[in-house]
């Protein structure tokens, strides 16, 4: 079997007495769309930040794209893309300027920056607004652009932290088209969400409750296992057992 592209074993993060991520273990295969689900405050963002080399884990092991999160965070950063919960483009720069800046930071050549910029603007239908500041764009457009910028350097993995928060259903659907497209190009997608319809789009999902992974499988298998109709019900069963 091919080595997993993300590997975590007993990965833990504590802040003082509070354990935000409690010994989670999982593997993600190359090219997979891996859904990382959980309620607010379950520890999803903390887990992601450890995997992308922003925070040092308290204990446990993790390898991302073949590199150790403790020793080689900078190598990891070269091989991943990341779209955070908070909006990460520069609001006071235009669409074009943002694309060019991030492409430049990742060391793309001038020619490929030009090509990528044109390609992206056409693909996202931003021709009319390419010289507008980001601040003036609707949220859905911004999110699609942020995603495209996060994978502008063709990373091995892209981490998406609630990329579709506050976005309308049609734009969300379009957003997932972009995710599929990236996945077809061979980019592994690691995505957190609490929209359970989105969970159905994933190859496999994990369900995080209070810092622990309570379930991990294909969406279909999880529904069978918990004897419910939808991922929504799986979520409710796991995350809010007291509701029943």
């Amino acid at each position: 079997m091919e080595r997993p592209i993300i590997y975590a074993k007993n990965l833990t993060k504590r802040f003082g007495n509070f354990t935000a991520v409690d010994a989670i273990s999982f593997e993600v295969g190359k090219g997979e769309i891996f859904g990382f689900l959980g309620a607010n405050g379950a520890g999803k963002t903390t887990a992601i930040k450890m995997l992308i080399g922003l925070w040092k884990p308290t204990e446990g092991q993790a390898m991302v794209a073949g590199y150790d999160v403790y020793k080689q965070p900078e190598e990891i950063k070269r091989n991943i893309g990341y779209m955070s919960q908070r909006f990460s483009l520069y609001e006071d720069l235009t669409v074009q300027e943002n694309i060019r800046f991030y492409a430049g930071i990742y060391g793309l050549s001038n020619q490929s920056i030009r090509e990528k910029t044109d390609e992206l603007i056409v693909k996202l239908g931003l021709e009319q607004v390419q010289n507008e500041r980001i601040a003036s764009l609707p949220l859905g457009w911004k999110q699609k652009l942020a995603f495209s910028v996060a994978i502008i350097h063709d990373p091995k993995i892209v981490f998406l932290d609630e990329p579709t928060g506050g976005v309308d259903p049609i734009t969300r659907r379009q957003f997932w088209d972009l995710i599929y497209e990236a996945s077809h190009k061979g980019i592994t997608v690691f995505v957190t969400t609490h929209y359970m319809d989105e969970a159905e789009y994933c190859d496999r999902v994990s369900m995080m409750v209070d810092g622990r992974i309570e379930a991990l499988d294909k969406p279909g298998a999880l529904k069978v296992h918990y004897g419910v109709e939808s991922m929504h019900d799986v979520f409710v069963k796991l995350a809010r057992p007291e509701v029943e």
Binding site: L54, K77, I80, S84, R86, F87, Y90, Y102, I105
Partner: peptide
Amino acid sequence: EIGTIEQLNVTPI
């Protein structure tokens, strides 16, 4: 404050 620093910190800069 804006949050863009996080995006820069995940680049290999």
